[in-house]
């Protein structure tokens, strides 16, 4: 297993799969408010454990509730996605209006610092496991906002991204393709950004605090 490289945070291959880290508590310093999920299935023998995990992951992949939070201009692509032309509900992807009931967070384009604050808060209120789909070039390298004083350029410094969909703007088809990738990854237990986030929370926090200078988000949030 490759070691996690802070310089290449987007490289999620350095991460363990969903099943592997459950044998041990995360070694990364985790604030006491932060918590990891179930450890019930680790006591089972590995074979069964794997089978169970496969089933679980299939359920997870087949019912992805998208948090209805249009963070950037790409949110305009989400409307056609849910209407009759593209109909994302046939993949079991409905919208969820509250972070408590959603699994996927679509960062739909540029992310100003002000929005980033809200996004982080929403992300942390979602139950585990949860995934981030980054939509458009802005999330990858700032896109056309490469010299904006108030727009972040690399999303994965602040949030773990599971799937990038490039383009400006990507068409709904591209987004659907991104979802397919995500579903595949989830099914294989490879979409583990949320776990990565928990393990490296300190590193993420540091990055977040560098842009969010008035860190007035109360700590009780997480």
């Amino acid at each position: 297993m490759k070691k996690f490289d802070p310089d290449r945070p987007w490289d999620l291959t350095t991460l363990p799969t969903t099943m592997a880290p459950q044998g041990s508590r995360p070694h990364a310093p985790v604030e006491d408010q932060c918590f990891l999920g179930a450890e019930a299935d680790i006591k089972q023998p590995p074979k069964l454990q794997e089978a169970v995990a496969t089933i679980k992951n299939w359920f997870r992949a087949s019912s992805l509730n998208v948090l209805a939070f249009g963070t950037g201009c790409g949110a305009i692509e989400l409307r056609p996605l849910s209407t009759s032309r593209f109909d994302m509900s046939r993949f079991g992807i409905p919208g969820a209006p509250t972070p408590r009931q959603s699994n996927v967070f679509i960062i739909s384009g540029y992310l100003s610092v002000k929005t980033l604050t809200r996004v982080i808060r929403c992300y942390e209120q979602m139950p585990d496991p949860k995934w981030v789909v980054a939509l458009g070039s802005c999330t990858i390298n700032g896109g056309m906002y490469w010299d904006s004083y108030n727009t972040i350029k690399v999303l994965d410094l602040y949030l773990p991204v599971d799937v990038y969909v490039s383009g400006c703007m990507p068409r709904p088809e591209a987004l659907i393709a991104g979802f397919q990738y995500l579903m595949d990854d989830v099914k294989k237990g490879k979409a583990n950004g949320w776990h990565h986030y928990l393990e490296n929370l300190e590193w993420y926090r540091e990055n977040q605090k560098q842009v969010i200078t008035d860190w007035d988000l109360p700590n009780y949030n997480w």
Binding site: N141, Y149, I152, K153, Q210, V211
Partner: peptide
């Protein structure tokens, strides 16, 4: 106000470019 300088200082770019 030098936007680019501020931007470079504050918002890291993705390595490789």
């Amino acid at each position: 106000f030098d936007t680019v300088a501020y931007c470079d200082r504050t918002h890291p770019v993705r390595p490789g470019r």
